[in-house]
Every structure is written in C-alpha cells, then in structure tokens.
Design a protein around this nucleic acid. Structure first.
Length: 565
RNA sequence: UGCCCCGUGGUGUAAGGGUAGCACAAGUGAUUUUGGUUCAUUUAGUCUAGGUUCGAAUCCUGGCGGGGUAGCCA
C-alpha cells in the first residue's frame, strides 16, 4: 500500500471519497463483488427523521455512483420487523412514503425481516446441531447477573452444556408455544469471558406471544436483531451493510453469525457516525414524548425534525438531499449546525420558486395625492433571475398595506426604510414620502399618510430603501404560521421546560397578500419578497383560501445591524 | 472499572510520509428596484508529550479529551 503512494508533487487523480466509498471502490476494483448492494433497514416503530435521511441518502445514492461493471447494484428497503410488541403497519406506510418523497426508488426490492423467519429458524437448528446454541431456562435477571461485568467474566448457565438433541427438543417446544413469554431463550454458545459483552452467549431467540403485523400468530418465537440482521443481509446479497457507530461492538457477533450459519453470501458491516444537529433533538423516544405531552400537534408538526414534518413545513426534498451530500461521512461524532440545512433550503428555493408580495404585519398607508379611485396594474417579474418564469400584474391603488417593520418613527441613520419625511421606493412601482403619522389614543401608529412621485415609475429619485406592499382593496387576509426552532440550546436533552423555545410558533391572522398569493394551491411554495419562503399548508389550505407556513426566512442583515444597537 | 472507536479553523469535512484545502458561519467591500441573490476579499486549524524519518495531520508509544458498550430493544 505504501509503495503505491504518488510521487511527490503529483496530485492524486482519484476523487476524494469518504471512507465507505473508498472501501466499496476497492471491493469493486479487486473483484470481491461484481456490484454493490446496500439496504436501508428501519424498524417500523416510529416516524423517520432527518437523521434517517442521512442513512437513506447514503444507502440509495452509493450504488448509483459505481456504473459500468456494477450493473445489478441497488438499495433494498427492508422493514426490520423482528419485535411484534413494538411495530405497526401504520409506520411501514409512512416509511415508504418518506423514502419515495426523498426521491429514492427501491422498485421491487422491498422486503421484511419477517419474510425470512423460516430461514432464521433453519439456521438456529443448524447452530444447535453444531453445538453452537442452547436453550437457557435462566430468568432474565439470572442471565444478567451471570453475564459478569466490564471487568469480570461471565459464569456459565447450568443449561450451557446440554446436548444438541435436548436443545433441539426444547427449541421445538419454544416454537410450538409450550412456554410462556420469558420462560427461556435460545442462546449462542460463544465466549463468556470475552471482553466484548456481546459475545458472552448472546440471546438469539426469545418467546413473544403477540400478534405480528405481517405474520400474525404464525410465530411465538422471534429472532434478536444481532442474529437476524446478518442473515437478512446475506439472504438479500447485501454487499455492504452500513449502520451507525453504536453497532460497532456488535460487528464481531455479526461476523460470527455469518461464519457459523449456512448463508448464501458474506456481507460486511461498516459503521458511520449518525447525524446530530444543533438546536435539534432526534431520538425517537424524545420525539414521541413531545407528541404525547402535546408540546407539538403531532408527528408532522412543522417544528418537528421528522420527514413528515419537514415535508409539511415545505422543505423541498432536493434541499435535504443536498444537505446530506454536504455534511460528509465519517466516524467522528460530530454535530452539524442547523444553519447548514437552512442554507440548503434557501439555495434550492431561491432558484426554483416565484417571488410574490405578502405583508405579514400590515400598516395602513394612504397616498394623499393618488387620483381618487384609480387602480393601476403594475407588471412585476415572478423571478427576476429567471425571466422564463414570466411576469404578473399587481394592482396598485391609493390605499396600501406595508410591513410594520418597514416604518420607524425615530429611525437611526442605518435604517433605510420609511420614517417621517423619508422617501422609499415601493418595489416595481413608485417612490413615496411619508408626510404624516396618524396615531390612536394609546400613541400607537395606526396609519401613514404619504405622497407619491408620479415621475418615479421607472426612475425618479434614487433611494436606498425599497419595500414591498399590497393594495388594500385587492389584498386578501390569510393566516400565516411563523415557525422557529423548538429548542433554545445547541444541545437539547436536559431540562425540557428550560430548553423549549416558547416562541417556536407565532400565528398571524391578518397578513395581507397580493392576488397571486391568494390563488396559490395547497402545497405550492413561493418567496414573500424580503421576508422568506412560504408554503400553502397542504393540510389546512383550501383552494382560494390558503394557510401559509414559513419554511425559512431570508437572510436578514438589517436584523444584525439592529441587534448591535 | 475492562474493551472498542474517534480527536484538523467557530462548525462540518479534505489532504492514504512531501505546499494544510473546501464548504458553512463570521467580518469587509462591490453590484443590486428584495438590507435577498451574485461577486471579490479577510480572519481563523492539525488535542498533547515523546519516537521513527531528510521530511509526520498522516506511522509508533504514552497522556489528555469525547463517544460507544453490561435488553429476552433495534
């Protein structure tokens, strides 16, 4: 290996692969495998989240990256349904939907671990005959006590040296349902003194009298993950079985099963670091709690990190794929900044969606010198950077809504927008100058009176401030939900009460939008100019009366300036 | 406490004994009828102590730090 290093100064020709792609490329080059087959093996006991997207992206993309001789490559979607107590069909359906939504195809390669129950059983019999597995009648407490500790070896069960014939009989009884849950277990006979606790005679099968979502009552013994997973992989011809770091210590057991069972292929397990994000909690247990405690409205609440929630929030799948590409792949336990996801979402939306006017928090503007009753149609580009997206007509009149944030009664000089006596441009239309501030009895600004410059339609005074607006008479009021991060700390997981963001959701009921926005169909996305990207919520919108979710805000450099003051 | 894995700018990730690079973030400037986009530019890094070598982020040893691991969960 070292003698093949390039000569000094000669740049490497190879693209920069991560360590897994390197292994795959080497296996293909050496002829170890003619193609690469991976698998994404979720347990159908919950919803998929952005962390799973990393794994889905890896497993489904990788086989596509090795063309030519690698024909036959692909990724299988497989439900790891070996525990009937926790799994439900509802989750199977949502997992399939999420994978397809992300843009990946598994074609006919959809499998269930339960498809192989008979095979697992044959392998177990094989192990028993070979004297490599035995039925243990110790209670789970006894087993734990006799497993030893990190520094002391385990002690053998009195059933450890039972004869294969006896074990065969007992295992048959297990399968026949003659014993209740927890009465005994089939164990591999490996090494009670191993420093790796996973090798101290791990359980292979346990008794569970429960309805399985796909095999019903056909079985009452179910294989453990460590036993079933390598066999599933081998059965499907998986070449590279990619999983997360916590399975590293299980690899010797994975290899033991492959070595000791009559398998048709020899897959290799490789571990990588799972995704962790700042200001985000990803563990299924914690997400479930948020749902059950009513902190969020459900698994698809747009503040959740589940794929169902991100879909509803409006994130485009292409942005998630790009994010997964950018975060890289290592064995280092890293935490990626959530801002990178936002960046990917903005990049994707910036180039793909139209840009319209919407006023989130309206402030009335009356244009004193506007001809009474006149309505002028203003042509506006749907996306100035993509002329092929066309233009639209925006109605303009003497009564407008502008953003409350675009006016300050006593503005600093860095504030480019409207203030008493100041002039700004209404985007695509005219310059206006604020001549009067109308307040209510409490001193709150209720309305601005302005004059417009009729000569400024395509020129006029050059001003620094440009603001969005809608004509009051033509605007439609719509509900808008402004989502923010659920957590206030980079590494949530401590005191929920203290760490939860009380302002993760703000609902606006009186936002005013231009006709093009009012006409958006459920699921349609756009940019509200100067504000951010929004989607007409697919669940709550109806044709003609959309309800908007903010997907992500635009970068706001004024907010940074303002924050410094 | 044993064993295993991992330590590169603020964050994420390259460099497989030979110039420490890229992206994000942050700063500055230019362009701009979105304080957006785009473009230019700046700041900033090999955990530590030894060893091998002409030469170490890379190989070896120790230390320090982080993670995993004692389910009849996956």
């Amino acid at each position: 290996m070292s003698q093949s290093s390039p000569a000094p100064g000669v740049p490497a020709e190879k693209p920069s692969f991560d360590f897994i792609r390197q292994i795959v490329a080497d296996d293909l080059a050496s002829g170890k495998h003619p193609c690469v087959i991976t698998r994404f093996p979720p347990e159908p006991n919950g919803y998929l989240h952005i962390g799973h997207a990393k794994s889905i992206y890896l497993n489904f993309s990788l086989p596509l990256e090795f063309p030519g001789e690698a024909a036959g490559s692909g990724c299988h979607l497989r439900m790891d349904d070996t525990n009937p107590a926790k799994e439900e069909v509802e989750y199977v359906d949502s997992i399939k939907e999420d994978v397809r939504w992300l843009g990946f195809e598994y074609g006919s390669h959809f499998y269930n671990a339960s498809d192989y129950f008979e095979f697992f059983h044959e392998c177990a019999v094989h192990l028993i005959r070979a004297g490599k597995a035995y039925v243990d009648f110790q209670t789970s407490d006894e087993m734990r006590a006799n497993r030893g500790t990190l520094t002391e070896p385990g002690r053998p069960s009195r059933w450890r040296d039972a004869l294969p014939e006896e074990n065969l009989v007992e295992f048959a009884k297990m399968r026949a349902g003659e014993y209740p849950d927890g009465h005994c277990v089939l164990r591999a006979k490996i090494d009670l003194g191993s420093a790796n606790l996973n090798l101290r005679d791990p359980a292979l099968y346990r008794i569970v009298h429960a309805e399985h979502h796909s095999t019903g009552r056909a079985w009452c013994i179910y294989p453990m993950y460590d036993y079933a997973h390598p066999l599933e992989d081998a059965k499907e011809g998986v070449t590279h079985s990619l999983c997360t770091l916590e399975f590293e210590a299980h690899r010797p057991l994975y290899d033991w099963v492959i070595e000791n069972c009559p398998v048709p292929a020899k897959p290799r397990q490789i571990e990588f670091a799972k995704l962790q994000l700042t200001f985000t909690l990803l563990s299924k247990r914690n997400l479930r709690r948020l749902v059950e405690d009513g902190v969020v409205t459900g698994w698809d609440d747009p503040r959740m990190p589940t794929l169902a929630a991100l879909r509803r929030r409006g994130l485009p799948p292409a942005a998630i794929r790009e994010f997964c590409r950018q975060i890289g792949l290592t064995k280092f336990n890293a935490r990626t900044e959530i801002g990178l996801l936002d960046k990917c979402v903005r990049d994707e939306l910036n180039k793909s969606v139209p840009r319209y006017f919407g006023v989130l928090r309206p402030l009335k503007v009356t244009i004193a010198n506007w001809p009474a009753g006149q309505v002028e149609m203003i042509e506006a580009a749907n996306n100035p950077e993509r002329p092929e997206l066309g233009t639209r007509q925006v109605p303009m009149s003497g009564e407008l809504w502008i953003e409350q944030d675009d006016f300050m009664e006593d503005p600093p000089k860095e504030f480019f927008r409207l203030g008493p006596g100041r002039e700004v441009r209404l985007r695509y239309a005219y310059n206006i100058t604020c001549t009067e501030v109308v307040k209510d009895a409490d001193g709150c600004v209720r309305e601005l009176v302005c004059t417009y410059d009729p000569e400024s339609r395509h020129g006029g005074k050059k001003v620094k401030g440009i603001i969005h607006w809608v004509s009051a008479a033509h605007a439609q009021a719509v509900p808008v939900r402004l989502y923010d991060r659920l957590w206030t700390v980079e590494e949530p997981g401590g005191d929920v009460e203290k760490e939860l963001n009380p302002r993760s959701l703000e609902v606006l009921s009186d936002s005013q939008v231009e006709p093009a926005v009012a006409a958006m169909e459920p699921g349609e996305r756009c940019q509200f100019e100067r504000l951010g990207y929004f989607i007409a919520d697919a669940h709550d919108s109806r044709s003609g009366s959309p309800v908007f979710n903010r997907i992500v805000g635009l970068k706001d450099s004024w907010a940074k300036v303002a924050a410094k003051k």
